[in-house]
Design a protein around this nucleic acid. Structure first.
Lengths: 199, 199
DNA sequence: CGAGTTACCTTACTTGAAGTAGGTTACTAC
DNA sequence: GTAGTAACCTACTTCAAGTAAGGTAACTCG
């Protein structure tokens, strides 16, 4: 009953705690450099527990990714809800995205590692999770633009997500760039295009 | 002197051979699932040779990435050379990109794995190599658009590259999409923007 | 209460791949 | 030839992922 004595916990709570700590470790050290032993020790539990709940190291990362993606999706979804027009929706969505990643560096770091398991069984699942994001954008676009083909809309959604992901990584190297500025850059290209225009 | 007897080779040639085979293996099995023993065996050489020449598994992947990026850069650079205006340059560049990845699936697969070493010492070097691509685009843009700020141009370049990378991945899941179509999708968004326009 | 069951948890192991120490063979120049 | 170097190998260590088999706390039902 002393403070050093680790408490037993119900599974759900322990899982949450594991995911939280794993997120930190994966974000700090990177997926491949993080060891399950270390994570287990930080949680205050032995390694087989991690395997009991998540099956594999990949499974654990996947859980972290799932959580972060869900949070990101929620944030952007709420931001665009009820926007009066496409331009506003896009602007609000972009801003929400860049604010989110500047406030949740750790979760964002984890998301960036999703490419780590190309060639593993979990690769499909990662794409699946990622589709949360693109589907949201695709849905938005079909709402506002109905003249375009399904395929074209899907492609545009992928395009937007990829562009923002990369721009976000670029922002990390330029910490003078605020979420507002990032949004402006993205908006400029996305909405009006690269074609020369006045103003 | 039988066929089974492996020949000695000068270092340069052996290195090329190693990179070629490593590229295949990394592309097929994914970075983490590929083993140095397997690669060595396919090359017909023992493992320490790989380490002698590339220092680490990461070093070997890095060499593969370097090679593929260089080829990709060359292809796009040649495509845009001498374009009469920005729109043409962009179109030619995009087409060259999508043609390249459809013709060099293997090299492209390797490039996709560059995110595998986030959190490792080599991460910076990967960004460096990647900058070959963005710098090229940024240079192009400063040629054609001189009203925009340095930062804005750099951001746009990252944006374009990220968008195309992601669109390329999407194309892999939709093999009915030809390089021409991919280019058209990309061009539509990139040049004219998402804003509604007629035609 | 106390016997049985469940579910949280552990120690101690196996396996497999990255990376290395140190020696061997063949080509090259004199 | 033979000295030197560049290409190469066998056999090892190390470290982390994943597992087998069992212990212990808590909860249920008589």
């Amino acid at each position: 009953m002393t403070a050093t004595k680790r408490k037993r916990m119900p599974r759900a709570e322990r899982e949450r705690q594991m995911i939280d700590i794993a997120e930190t470790v994966f974000a700090e050290r990177g997926y491949s450099s993080a060891s399950m032993d270390d994570i287990a020790e930080l949680v205050g539990v032995s390694k087989p527990m991690l395997y009991e709940y998540f099956n594999s190291k990949e499974g654990l990362l996947l859980a972290c990714i799932r959580q972060s993606r869900a949070a990101l999706r929620l944030a952007t979804e709420q931001a665009v809800a009820g926007a009066p027009d496409a331009e506003t929706a896009l602007h609000r969505g972009l801003l929400a995205f860049f604010v989110f990643i500047s406030e949740h560096r750790q979760g964002w770091s984890v998301l960036r590692q999703e490419m780590s398991f190309i060639g593993t069984p979990a690769a499909d699942e990662v794409e699946e999770i990622r589709r949360q994001q693109t589907d949201l954008i695709a849905a938005l676009m079909s709402t506002y633009f109905d003249g375009r083909s399904e395929l074209q809309i899907e492609a545009s959604a992928e395009f937007v997500v990829g562009a923002c992901d990369r721009l976000a990584i670029w922002c990390e190297r330029h910490d003078e760039v605020t979420p507002d500025e990032a949004t402006r850059y993205a908006m400029d290209v996305l909405w009006r295009g690269l074609a020369p225009h006045d103003s």
